[in-house]
Amino acid sequence: MILAGSQNLLAVQNAIVGVAAKGMSSAAFFKIMNNSDQSDTLYAVRADFAEMAQLHVSFRKDGLVGMHPVKFVAVPARSTFYFKHGGYHVMLMGVKENLTAGKKVKLELLFRRAGTITVEAVVKR
């Protein structure tokens, strides 16, 4: 495990987590840059500051919005994959402390090939 947010040719950058009061839900967003010639798969996220972390995707259809869990996210070779508002995000349920703007928290991203990548995320409104 490393703390720099990258391993070999896979890097995770610009990680942010939304503000949330203790006990509530939040979400994490970041970008994954796969500079290798092989695709990789993000299959889990660990967040010690939340009761549960799940990979989710939001959808918009016929004026309605919603989200549902996904089991994994494939990151193709030589590509950048964005976890962003309105799309893929890490659902963080039951945060264990107040997440106020400016605070920093750690996320562990588990990839099939690259292994575990630990990133520091900044809490933002």
Binding site: E51, G63, L64, V65, G66, M67, H68, P69, M93
Partner: peptide
């Protein structure tokens, strides 16, 4: 404004958490 429960998840302590599909308005 429309809304209805959609997917749900059980936490480690068995508590049900559900998500809602809703109008964005």
């Amino acid at each position: 404004v429309r809304y209805f429960p959609n997917d749900s998840t059980y936490s480690k302590d068995g508590k049900l958490s559900y998500y809602i599909v809703h109008t964005d308005k």
